[in-house]
């Protein structure tokens, strides 16, 4: 990373209170980790004491001061996963890769780290490799996960891919299922929604596998909308999906769908944005009247 890049990131966060975390996040996004010289440069340029910058960078598990490998395996050791045998999963990873948790293999392929709860306790033991969630991981599955990661995440048959969590979505307003068997994506019924934009409307088919980026627009959204949000509504009752939060990636409204099992899924309303959020916290109870 050159100084200009760092400067522009610093400028972006400079006058935000609490901007340090965003600043470190973005820097790490560029470099993969936070080298000492960068932390020193950040402290110098922002005028924050180095002890503060270092304190924040070491406090959060998401930051790494050591170079990480090409693939990052996060193994959950939170309470729920722990009681379901996560320590043995860690052991298994350590055995197969020949490194200890927190270390990177010699060939710089894999970094194994442990985290304390990924917020998906019901699916535990949970492992995340390169952003993909693997649920109910057993010792046997570990070898498979490693092999699969090495082969590349995108190859292979997604329907048989047990790393992906299948979801059943319904409309929070009318309660009807949004699953569309007539338009399968990745071998499973898709989640089908209606969209409206300046240039007309159509259907949006989302993959029902959480973690999959597949989204098919029918017809393709008008050229203006990659940047502007569209309106997403239920094909049955026609109600626009409520927005409870803003997309972490682009700041647009997120549409809230109900997921079978008392969860909810939020998807970004900007077509070009991949922002999706599966929340395994039970859906806030419907407003009682």
């Amino acid at each position: 990373m050159n100084n200009k890049q760092l400067d522009s990131i610093i400028d972006k966060y400079h006058d935000q209170p609490g901007g340090l975390i965003g600043l470190l996040e973005e820097t790490q996004g560029l470099l993969g980790y936070l080298p000492e010289y960068v932390l020193r440069a950040i402290s110098e340029k922002t005028g924050r004491p180095l002890a503060d910058v270092y304190g924040v960078a070491t406090f959060y598990r998401a930051f790494s001061l050591k170079p990480r490998g090409r693939h990052l395996a996060l193994i959950c050791l939170g309470t729920a996963c722990h009681v379901r045998g996560a320590p043995r999963i860690v052991e298994e990873f350590e055995k197969h890769l020949g490194v200890k948790a927190g270390e990177t293999t010699k060939d710089k392929e894999f970094t194994v780290e442990t985290v304390n709860c990924l917020g998906a306790c019901a699916l535990g033991p949970t492992v995340v490799v390169d952003g993909r969630y693997y649920s109910h991981v057993s010792r046997r599955k570990v070898r498979e996960i490693i092999a699969q990661t090495k082969r590349g995440q995108e190859t292979g048959d997604p329907a048989a891919d047990r790393r992906l969590v299948p979801m059943e979505a319904s409309c929070p307003a009318c309660g009807q299922s949004l699953m569309d068997g007539k338009h399968p994506t990745e071998g499973r019924p898709s989640i089908s929604l209606e969209f409206l934009s300046d240039g007309g409307g159509g259907r949006l088919h989302l993959s029902s596998l959480y973690g999959s980026p597949v989204a098919e627009w029918e017809p393709a959204p008008p050229p203006s909308s990659p940047v502007s949000a569209v309106v997403l509504c239920c094909p049955h009752c026609g109600k626009e999906f409520e927005s409870r939060s803003l997309c972490a990636e682009c700041g647009a409204d997120m549409a809230l769908l109900r997921i079978h099992g008392g969860f909810h899924l939020e998807i970004c309303t900007v077509p070009a944005c991949r922002g999706r959020l599966l929340s395994l916290i039970p859906t806030p109870a419907e407003k009682r009247t």
Binding site: L39, L50, A51, Y54, F59
Partner: peptide
């Protein structure tokens, strides 16, 4: 502000950044 808290939980400690003289 030469020293500060570092890490978290069990690994929380006090010292200089990078453990070298500040």
């Amino acid at each position: 502000k030469a020293i500060g808290f570092r890490g978290r939980g069990e690994r929380r400690s006090i010292g200089t950044p990078f453990d070298v003289q500040s």
